[in-house]
């Protein structure tokens, strides 16, 4: 490779670098700077104070082992993150497997893949609101259960609970798992699966030793999508949790509403750090660049 060829690749990357620099890196730096500013109810002023971070972690040391608000919020968000990740992974993997290996016709596969995107034909908020008449105290599910005589009192935990939050999250995010996993599965050489079968591997062994390792990059990409969406969400948790369940995003939103931009920025930086740590952990297990 000549020197000139090396420079060419830099030039080719420049447009993307410029766009990311202006619309991503710069705002991020501004946010970092603002997180050290001071504020009143109606103004923010440049300064360098760590009060915002201290406020964000207020009581975390003194109340230990009882969790402070911030830790509790992150614990709750992480809990949703793990549960939703596990569920979307299992469901998404199963659907992707079915689409790739069980469907013979390309047309049918395409049609079924399109079916998976139907929930995206309406807005996120509408999709979530439509759960309410279904799961409410006087909703369809409760009416059906009471009508069929399975229960005597309507179930309260169907709506405005952890259950409903997880349900909505899984409903919305499974497709983010399906697409990348199906994509990496489609590139698995079928002769490898046949070879495993011919060598006497059971279906389970083939799955474990051939398909999962080869679909790892899809799993990792899908996981990053799901984890980042769930970590930063406050609309789903707010609507489906009846605003009773805290989320890091909601804390930031309340602070922005109260015009406390610096402390909101500090919390956003903390959230960013947490998400980056999770992704770093994920990338440690799966080298996405190598797998692609």
């Amino acid at each position: 490779m000549t020197i000139r060829a090396r420079w060419t690749s830099y030039w080719q990357a420049t447009p993307l670098v410029v766009v990311l620099g202006i619309f991503f890196v710069l705002p991020l730096l501004v946010m970092l700077a603002v997180s050290f500013w001071t504020y009143t109810g109606y103004s923010i002023a440049p300064a360098f104070v760590t009060d915002n971070y201290r406020d964000a972690f207020d009581g975390c040391a003194s109340q230990f082992p009882t969790l402070c608000t911030t830790f509790r919020t992150y614990a709750s968000t992480l809990k949703f993150c793990v549960i939703v990740w596990a569920l979307t992974l299992v469901i998404g993997f199963a659907i992707a497997y079915y689409l790739t290996f069980m469907i013979r016709s390309n047309t049918v596969r395409l049609m079924l893949a399109l079916l998976c995107t139907i929930p995206f034909w309406t807005s996120n908020v509408i999709r979530m609101i439509s759960w309410i008449p279904l799961l409410g105290r006087n909703g369809l599910v409760n009416q059906a259960l009471v009508g069929a005589g399975f229960i005597h009192q309507p179930l309260d935990w169907l709506l405005y609970s952890d259950f409903s939050v997880i349900l909505a999250f899984v409903h919305i995010n499974t497709v983010f798992m399906i697409v990348p996993i199906a994509n990496s599965m489609a590139r698995i050489d079928r002769s490898l699966v046949e070879a495993a079968y011919d060598s006497g591997a059971t279906g389970w062994q083939t799955l474990r030793h051939v398909i999962i390792p080869l679909a790892k990059s899809g799993i990792a990409i899908g996981s990053i999508f799901v984890i980042t969406v769930v970590m930063g969400d406050f609309i789903t948790i707010g609507l489906m949790g009846g605003q009773q369940i805290a989320s890091a995003g909601k804390v930031i939103q309340t602070q922005i509403s109260a015009l406390q931009f610096p402390i909101a920025a500090a919390n956003a930086i903390v959230l960013l750090a947490v998400v980056l740590m999770i992704i770093a952990l994920l990338v440690r297990f799966i080298d996405i660049r190598k797998e692609l």
Partner: peptide, 19 residues
């Protein structure tokens, strides 16, 4: 009302939502 201690109140309110 908006209180003099509004910033503190908002923080405590977030605690209530998180509880």
């Amino acid at each position: 009302a908006i209180m003099d201690e509004n910033a503190y109140m908002v923080r405590k309110w977030n605690e209530f939502i998180a509880a």
